[in-house]
Write a protein that binds this DNA or RNA. Structure first.
Lengths: 201, 201, 201, 201
DNA sequence: AATGAATGAGAGTTCATTCAT
DNA sequence: TATGAATGAACTCTCATTCAT
């Protein structure tokens, strides 16, 4: 059965990717060596090249994998929510949770030389997809009159960048759980900021 | 006469630091080589070692330099303001401006292996200093009853991380000037979030 | 099968060590470069690092190897001799032969910064072992009344240093064979010096 | 006055040489850097090149200087002695003392790449001079019938190499003074070895 | 004469990648 | 397919020496 082969191959790829993710928690992608990955994944160094053309491709797969997961989870956790305010709360909570799970995500996003790697195609597309999902939530809120009517793109970017900043900070300095009052305060602030004045505005 | 020498030496150090800053706009500190710096600063590679013990020391100086500048500017631009709301507005605007000038700042902060370098002492102290400056603004606002009375540390961290996130995003994706409506919207959101309800809350 | 691998690896290590030994005949360990060793051993420079952690480790292995060989040979060639006088003659002859084979031995011993390298443990232990072997011969001679009864340590050190001095000189300036009358004269002198007066004394 | 200049220049050369001698007590000539010498001699590195063409020339001067001193002292301390046995005793004692004062002497002699440096001329001539002095003592002993009649060159080399070996060992491992019984034993052994049998032989 | 500054050449070491089995 | 071995290229850093004042 060809399928069996295929499945095993995929599983070995996956374990190399996971080993790399582990390492990314401690080091930047530039200081991770193929030796590190080999040791961590329990393969011989040369074997890794049977599954990935080179270090760059491996890294790209690692990065696009978590972007894909992120998009999937956002769809699952937020888009089901019909209330835009609740959907937005869920998104922010999710973002914090997610970055706690993959703290290297924003670091990589901040430093990976996307431009140099033709692969932009793939990664940038995923970034766009995420953006569209968030934009969807906001738009719904605007349509039903809950959210302020500023430029959609502006609002989307703001939400994403600001949540990212907070989540990154949170994952770096705070070990406490997700029930922390800090989070609730942050979420309220954001929601208040984009909600048509509970007061007025 | 000695002073002249000293000044010239300092100016050469400075030009190496500036060349490094240039390079940090394009690459991470790990992928910048001493050759890059040599070419960029128009010195022979070996000459750089007359001014900095090694790559690490050079990088540390680059990083601590901008942290120092940042602290100075915050003092200058914000602490003079007696109105806490205005001081906070100034801080956020400044942060955006600053990160646009030094976009590599947050990237370095996110990826530099501070732990490994005993130099924490110096850099962490500077981080603390910045935090204290912001905390000072917030505290004044709380004392005079303008800002909400949440935990000071929580509020401070939130402001810093969120402004950083936004500024980072802004410097990465937006080339437009600082009059952009996005900025105003962001600032209002934050201010609204920490101000004792103009409405209620 | 594993054993085969192991054996081949060992043989490659050995050939690097031998190349280094060759070079030590012409240069000091400090002026031998990894490039020299690479060329001499017909490996790429980088390959050497698969067999030795660094230059220091390689050198240490070279040095301890000949000390081990020396100790083995002394045991084999001298300790079997029951007559202490003959054993001592054998030792001195052997020392000359040995230093002719490895002329860099005493030079290294004289200049290698053992103190700096924690490895003292290993090398100094080997030096001690050699000393004990010679001391053994002398002690036997003292016990059976042939050798003078001076302090054992004093005698041992004298024999070793003096033989070393002679052998070193011999290997540097004399190319002739081991039947040279110089050697016989040297040996007689030493033996006479430590033997209880054939005449009196 | 030209002479005054000349004298000062000479005195500065001398202080650089002395600084180098200091350093040779701790390191090999290969691992001593011009920076080391500069610091040790309290000159700027570039200034050293006003007194010595290059590192090699400086080292050669250091080495030939002590050889000259050695020759002078041998003449002074031994050749005045009319009794050959006493002259030889004096020489050996002197050698030990001298090597204690300049322990790096034999190390340099063992490792300096004389062949490569055309300067052999000078250094080898000095070695020869020393040899002739010792040979002179022995010859006198042979003529007056005290020393054995072996080949003069053989005897000379033996005495020199063996005394060197002992002195080197003594200076490395023994800190005690020159009255040590080890020295007396060594000297007796040598004298006994080259003296026409007090017993017979 | 004295020296701070500058540097080419080269040292040891590492790393992503390929080769050979 | 899996991997031990091999390596070119590149990196950080050092050093003897020269330059410019």
């Amino acid at each position: 059965m060809r399928a069996r082969h295929e499945r095993e191959r995929e599983s070995r790829r996956e374990s190399i990717i996971e080993a790399t993710e582990q390492l990314l928690n401690e080091k930047t992608f530039e200081s991770i060596t193929m030796d590190d990955i080999a040791i961590s994944s329990d393969f011989a160094k040369a074997s890794i090249y049977q599954y990935f053309k080179n270090k760059e491709e491996l890294m790209m797969e690692v990065f696009s994998k978590i972007l894909e997961i992120e998009c999937h989870l956002i769809e699952e956790k937020c888009l089901s929510q019909t209330d835009p305010v609740q959907a937005m709360r869920n998104f922010i909570k999710f973002e914090i949770e997610f970055i706690r799970r993959y703290p290297w995500g924003p670091k990589v996003a901040a430093t990976f030389p996307f431009r140099d790697y033709h692969a932009e195609s793939c990664l940038l597309a995923l970034y766009d997809q995420k953006k569209k999902l968030i934009a969807g939530i906001i738009q719904r809120g605007q349509t039903e009159g809950t959210f302020i009517t500023s430029d959609l793109d502006v609002l989307t970017n703001m939400i994403i960048s600001v949540s990212g900043g907070f989540a990154n900070y949170f994952s770096t300095f705070i070990s406490s759980d997700l029930q922390s009052p800090e989070i609730e305060m942050f979420i309220s602030t954001i929601i208040k900021g984009i909600t048509k004045g509970s007061s007025d505005e």
